[in-house]
Design a binder for these strands. Structure first.
Length: 670
DNA sequence: GGACTCTGGATTTTT
DNA sequence: TCCAGAGTCC
């Protein structure tokens, strides 16, 4: 039996636990896979197994957390054979978007535009008007709290209490603003990320729709199940009777609580999904035992019972290193030096992974990598479609694709010299009025934009003519705006920005429409450095935020900035759940290393900022600091004291300082 | 009145 | 890098 033999090859490289997880015949499954236990391997093997068993690839859907994870699964599945092509792999948001766009008769919302976080804040700012704040909250904070409420499916008032426990905020005042914002969003036919999930979930509540959607798939696999939030569960629940679910996750790696995920939500999985079988993978294939000892200790120091104890199949290796420095700059400099040395010794750059807590802290390291000529990619850095100059160019495309897109119009119009907010708003109102009288988009532009320069009207017409060749349209928009952008960004790295525009043009090739192009990269962003920093070959260092590091591993991992006040973050203090999530963030970081783990920190330079309820003193941060109870012997510690050459004291016998006349010579004025 | 320029300050984490 | 605010210029 040829099929059976193939199956044996496929399963041969798996351990008994993985094999069992791959061939399970239960209708629904949850695989609790600890860090490094072969989670992705298991998912990929499961997909291959299903296909070998006769499932058509396009009846399998893998829900992943990021575009990168989706690409990884797709490529690992496809290396086997072309027969594997067609497996869907995408995020929840991309899935919802695809269903909504492909089936306007079922879901509606045809022609509505998706807004990213910045644009949502822009709409909210418009609602807030002059003061730009309500109850002390600014636009982006209100957007966040609304999103939290929807993703956790609680009321706005509860979300406000959860997000801002120390502040007295009148939920009614926020509610009024939010209502006005929702109204404006509807008027302009805007959707945000949450709306996509909500629309999908709301229609799935209809049993007929659920049966229909479910009938498209034999199995839906969900990666990173621990980070699935209540809103996403409302998509899963109605589909349970109609397809199979294969979920993989690890509660100890749940780090998306701020987005509504609850790490405990996978515990009652088998009650929530009737008939589900729960399996565990506990043998770690990634790291040495010493690295796991440190990781295991971190969890065991928690008041929560994680019940994790990772065992290293690979056995023993070097102790993790703990390096302390005076300042973050010293820390970053040392890391860059280590990478350089290793490269000179013949190790490729891609041996290394550097993990940081925030984008901000990554930038210090990024600049030292640049200084040392080390090729890198920064996952978590600036996203291409979120950078100001790319948004400028996209605004020209957006107004062509959707003439009602107010945010895009205002952005585009204010690029015109001598046009500010007021003039732009007036022009937009004129456009709307013309459209309401039945003018085509092109005619409305011709009549309403009479006072605008000719290049704008002609340029938009040219973009419209190229709308079905999206890369061409991007090129035309960039050409049209290059003169004004060159001025706007003349002191802000214009050359590099101009190169980005070429990348955008390339990404747009083969997209069917402007909206499809924008939506694809809005829902699955590309980081700028993925396109620019390591263009030559694949050998580069990976710098990543811990949150973007899901699924990443490397021979050497540097966890940077592991200082008091950072782990846990001072913002989490006072909230036990938040502190626990911080612990899991560090756990995810530590478990990325295969052979060498370097934990680095700047001890004498911790920023102690004023915070709601007063600044935290250093000793409070020290008390909460996870590594302050680190037992002897788990790590090899090095304290790096900067080498300062001693300077000789002043010459002996110097006269006492004389009084010096500090007044200015007034000359004739006297 | 509106546009533009400069400066200082702050920045968890992401679809 | 980005935003907000103040001050300046047309």
């Amino acid at each position: 039996m040829a099929e059976q033999t193939g199956s044996d090859d496929l399963l041969g490289s798996l351990n008994p636990g993985q094999r069992e997880a791959v061939v399970t015949g239960a209708s629904h499954n949850l695989v609790l896979a600890g860090a490094g236990t072969g989670k992705t391997t298991t998912i990929v093997a499961r997909i291959r197994h299903l296909i070998r068993q006769g499932t058509a690839p396009n009846r399998i859907l893998a829900i992943t957390f990021t575009r990168r994870a989706a690409a990884e699964i797709r490529s690992r599945v496809q290396t086997e054979s072309r027969a594997m092509e067609g497996v869907g792999a995408m995020t929840f948001h991309a899935w919802a978007m695809r269903e909504v766009r492909a089936n306007p008769d079922v879901f509606g919302y045809e022609g509505w535009s998706v807004l990213d976080a910045d644009d949502q804040a822009q709409v909210m700012r418009g609602v807030l008007g002059r003061g730009k704040r309500v109850e002390g909250l600014k636009a982006s904070q209100i957007i966040d709290v609304v999103s939290f409420a929807r993703n956790t499916r609680v009321t706005l008032a509860d979300a406000i209490r959860a997000k801002f426990p120390d502040q007295t905020i009148d939920p009614k005042a926020i509610g009024a603003v939010v209502r006005a914002y929702e109204e404006r969003k509807k008027e302009r036919r805007y959707l945000n990320y949450d709306d996509l999930l909500l629309i999908f979930a709301a229609r799935l509540a209809d049993p007929q729709v659920a049966a229909w959607v479910g009938s498209h798939y034999d199995e839906i696999l969900i990666d990173e199940m621990q980070d699935t939030n209540p809103l996403q569960w409302t998509i899963i629940d109605p589909l349970v009777p109609h397809t199979r679910f294969y979920c993989v996750g690890d509660d100890a790696q749940s780090i998306y609580g701020f987005r509504g995920a609850d790490f405990a939500s996978i515990h009652p999985f088998s009650e929530r999904v009737p008939g589900a079988r729960v399996m565990r993978l506990e043998d770690n294939y990634r790291s040495t035992q010493e690295i796991l000892n440190l990781s295991n200790w971190l969890l065991s120091a928690s008041p929560l019972e994680y019940g994790k104890h990772l065992r290293a199949v690979r056995g023993s290796g070097a102790k993790p290193e703990l390096h302390s420095f005076e300042t973050p700059q010293d820390e970053a400099g040392w890391i860059a030096g280590e990478l350089r040395r290793a490269h000179e010794d013949g190790l490729p750059w891609n041996t290394h992974l550097i993990l940081v807590r925030s984008n901000y802290s990554g930038r210090a390291i990024e600049s030292l990598l640049i200084e040392n000529d080390i090729p890198y990619v920064f996952f978590g850095g600036t996203k291409l479609l979120e950078s100001a100059h790319v948004r400028d160019v996209l605004s020209a495309l957006r107004v062509v694709a959707n003439p009602d897109d107010e945010v895009a119009w205002l952005r585009l119009l204010t690029l015109v010299p001598r046009v500010g907010d007021r003039t732009a708003v007036r022009a937009f109102d004129a456009l709307l009025a013309a459209r309401e009288q039945g003018a085509s988009a092109r005619d409305a532009r011709a009549s309403a934009l009479v006072s605008m320069p000719e290049w704008l009207r002609a340029g938009l017409d040219a973009i419209e003519d190229a709308a079905n060749r999206v890369d061409d349209a991007v090129g035309r928009a960039a050409a049209m705006l290059t003169p004004v952008l060159a001025t706007k960004y003349r002191n802000e790295n214009w050359d590099a920005r101009q190169r980005d525009l070429v990348h955008v043009e390339r990404l747009a090739a083969s997209r069917r429409s402007i909206l499809e192009f924008i939506e694809e990269y809005l829902l699955s962003p590309v980081f700028t450095s993925e396109l620019t920093a390591a263009p030559k070959d694949d050998d580069h260092v990976v710098l990543s935020t811990v949150h973007s590091a899901k699924g990443l591993e490397a021979d050497w991992a540097f966890c940077a900035g592991v200082s008091p006040g950072a782990y846990p973050s001072s913002r989490a203090l006072g909230d036990a759940d938040a502190v626990e999530e911080e612990r899991r963030v560090l756990y995810v970081a530590l478990t990325r290393a295969r052979d060498r783990l370097c934990v680095t920190r700047a001890l004498f330079h911790t920023p102690v900022r004023a915070w709601v309820g007063g600044p935290y003193a250093m000793d409070v941060l020290e008390d909460a600091y996870f590594l302050s109870t680190l037992p002897e012997g788990l790590v090899a510690e090095t304290v790096h004291v900067p080498q300062r050459a001693p300077r000789p004291g002043p010459p002996p016998g110097l006269a006492a300082p004389p009084e010096i006349d500090l007044g200015v010579d007034l000359g004739d004025l006297e």
